[in-house]
């Protein structure tokens, strides 16, 4: 069975924005004038950089309190994990699982997935290429939902302001958590999934 030709063989490359098949040596898309690259520039390095930054930010995001709750029975600061544990101990295991998945499991999974993708691409591994491509698409999709925690804190802090009765204030930890999410998204965006398949043939650049 004959495989379809590679774009490289036809000396064309796709514009990232409008999908126009540009000549390979073009620097701008002839149609929409956006920069054209055969592969995303410096993809691996950028992905690595954003990934490492997000891992670094992940530490204060988990150790610093994200939320200060002041009820009339005293105030307390909660980190992400202590909030999860508190919910779990009070019997709200469903909310606890939801927060755990959104705030802990998903970022961790993204670190693992992106790390795996990066390492395999660098080693030009031919292992489970199709699955890796699926993983990448999955990471891109769930990236948006990682902001759930930040959103919850923002909404709750804005709504629960009853002066003496109860107040909820955001704390520094949520800023770092937001940065983690942004960094992982940037990291995922910098990654070029075509690199997965480049292991089949010789490198393009």
């Amino acid at each position: 069975m004959s495989k379809p030709p590679y774009a490289r063989e036809l000396k064309v490359c796709l514009c990232h924005i409008c999908g126009f098949a540009c000549p390979q040596d073009a620097h701008e898309c002839p149609r929409c004038f956006s920069p054209v690259h055969v592969r995303k520039t410096n993809s691996l390095a950028r992905t690595w950089a954003f990934l490492i930054a997000s891992i670094i930010f992940y530490v204060p995001a988990n150790t610093l309190p994200v939320m200060y709750t002041s009820m009339f029975s005293g105030g307390s600061e909660n980190t992400i994990m202590s909030g999860v544990i508190e919910f779990w101990q009070h019997g709200s295991w469903d909310i606890a699982i939801l927060i755990f998945i959104a705030s802990v499991a998903v970022p961790c999974m993204k670190f693992c997935v992106l790390g795996t993708l990066l390492i395999t691409c660098q080693r030009r591994s031919c292992w489970a290429m199709r699955e890796r491509a699926k993983l990448y698409r999955f990471v891109e999709v769930i990236g948006y939902w990682s902001m759930l925690d930040v959103l919850v804190v923002a909404v709750v802090a804005a709504l629960v302001q009853f002066r003496a009765l109860s107040t909820i204030e955001p704390r520094l930890g949520i800023l770092f958590f937001g940065l983690v999410v942004v960094m992982t998204m940037l990291s995922a965006m910098s990654f070029d999934p075509r690199l997965i398949w480049d292991a089949e043939v010789n490198d393009v650049e």
Partner: peptide, 18 residues
Amino acid sequence: VSLVWLVPIVAALVGLSM
């Protein structure tokens, strides 16, 4: 070296300073 490496460096600096 790509300029993008500044990002993790800044992150590390922020964490370290904290």
